[in-house]
Design a protein around this nucleic acid. Structure first.
Length: 271
DNA sequence: CGCCAGGCCTGCACGC
DNA sequence: TGCGTGCAGGCCTGGC
């Protein structure tokens, strides 16, 4: 599933194909994505000049002359740039046609993703307006994490995955960042000390940076968010390693369900 | 064949 | 009353 580093890698891959180009239409083979709004793209994108491609959390924003195309890849979505004449494969739901003869093709087997047009300021859209700071920005640090955790009795893992607190921290990197910071995922957020918050903000940035570095190396004109990006090439310390020895102390990694999500930690390294 | 994975929105229940 | 918070359901299909 695309985590923030994969989405950012996708953004960087898309940008040179889109910026200063035009959408000349869209082919919608299956409009059943999340939040609706897909069907109208065929008419909306008939002639739209593209200014730039940005990202907010895991949302990709394609800023055009008369509005913004918002794309979320959900769990199984991927985008690639191919000649428009390339035969679609199964789950290739939407083609965004470009004046270059290429198209941006969305594949999303599980259809948890979304793609819709926003008129006006996308930052005010209801799906975007309440998002917290970007994890890799200066606005997210030990101090902001400290403030955000003061009144929260919820587990710290759930709090760092709360998009009101910080965006783009998915399950895998939440587990990894907590391990690197030496913090148990189930600890009540308000029980973190200031130095815990400093450490955790730092390790969140660290794991995302590391994944971004790996993800950025394999990109060509094909923009992917599946297959072998990011975390598959990183050595994971805890995620998916239940029962296996901790890479630091060899204690078997434990797993529990938290908020309906698989959670992994080392009972010795994480207090 | 059945279950699980997972992002994340949505609706509901609860306490202040 | 209203808000912040926490919890659970729902959306899907490939892969085990």
């Amino acid at each position: 599933m695309p985590e923030l580093p994969e989405v950012e890698t996708t953004r960087r891959g898309l940008a040179p194909h889109l910026e200063r180009h035009r959408f000349i239409g869209a082919v919608v083979r299956d409009a059943r994505l999340r939040h609706g709004g897909v069907a109208e793209l065929a008419s909306v994108l008939r002639d739209e000049r593209i200014a730039r491609v940005s990202r907010r959390g895991k949302y990709l924003l394609v800023h055009c002359a008369h509005g913004t195309l918002v794309i979320h890849l959900g769990m199984s979505g991927s985008l690639r740039v191919v000649p428009a004449a390339t035969p679609p494969q199964s789950h290739d739901h939407v083609d965004l046609l470009l004046d270059s003869g290429l198209c941006v093709r969305l594949r999303d087997p599980r259809r948890f993703g979304s793609m819709f047009w926003v008129r006006g300021d996308p930052a005010q859209h209801k799906l975007l307006r309440d998002l917290g700071p970007e994890p890799l920005s200066d606005e997210f640090n030990g101090s902001t994490l400290w403030q955000a955790t003061r009144n929260r009795s919820a587990a710290i893992k759930q709090v760092i995955m709360d998009h009101h607190v910080v965006v783009g921290v998915g399950n895998i990197y939440a587990n990894e960042a907590l391990f690197l910071a030496g913090i148990r995922p189930g600890r009540a957020a308000r029980r973190l000390r200031r130095q815990d918050c400093d450490a955790l903000a730092a390790t969140i940035k660290q794991v995302l940076h590391a994944a971004l570095k790996v993800g950025g190396t394999t990109l060509r004109n094909y923009v992917r968010s599946e297959g072998s990006p990011g975390y598959f090439q990183l050595e994971l310390f805890v995620y998916g390693r239940a029962g296996e020895p901790c890479r630091r102390c060899e204690t078997p990694i434990k797993t529990v369900r938290m908020g309906q999500r698989s959670t992994f930690y080392c009972p010795r390294c994480q207090a």
